[in-house]
Structures are given as C-alpha cells and as structure tokens.
C-alpha cells in the first residue's frame, strides 16, 4: 500500500515579496480576473435563465 502520509511533499515556499512571489502573484492575478469574471458571468446567466423559466412555467394558482 502506498503510504500517503510519507508521500506528501510540501511545495517550496518563496521568500515573501520576492521576485518569485511577485511572479506567483501575477499568475494569481490572472486566475482572479478570469475566476471572478466567470463566477459573476455564470451566476448572471443563471439569473437570466431563472427569470425566463419563471415566465415560461408560471405557478398554477
């Protein structure tokens, strides 16, 4: 059995505010831009579809 406890390899930390950490920050910025835009965009799309569905399938009173 593969020992998962021993297999864990912590990734190397960069020095705070170093050139490497700024490089990681820039990659993170890309994830942030794409991520936030996508989350807001997808939920807005779902909002529009729900509004449409409520009109298509009104509740029978």
């Amino acid at each position: 059995m593969y020992n998962l406890f021993l297999a864990v390899n912590a990734s190397k930390m960069n020095a705070p505010f170093s050139a490497e950490s700024f490089d990681t920050f820039m990659k993170g910025l890309k994830i942030t831009g794409l991520g936030m835009t996508t989350v807001i965009g997808v939920l807005f799309l779902i909002y529009l579809i729900i509004k449409l569905l409520i009109k298509i399938f009104p509740e029978n009173k």
């Binding site: 990734s11 190397k12 930390m13 960069n14 020095a15 705070p16 505010f17 170093s18 490497e20 950490s21 700024f22 990681t24 920050f25 990659k27 993170g28 910025l29 994830i31 942030t32 991520g35 936030m36 989350v39 807001i40 997808v42 939920l43 807005f44």
Partner: peptide, 22 residues
C-alpha cells in the same frame, strides 16, 4: 453569491505575495 467569493481570490493574491506557491 458571486460577489462574496471575492475573498477566495483576494486571499490567493495575499498568500502568493507572502511566498506560498500557486
């Protein structure tokens, strides 16, 4: 529900600056 996920991404950036790998 979308806007309040900002903390995820903001913290990712802070952690990156503090030296954590991506």
């Amino acid at each position: 529900g979308a806007a309040a996920q900002f903390g995820i991404f903001a913290t990712l950036l802070v952690a990156a600056l503090l030296g954590y790998p991506l």
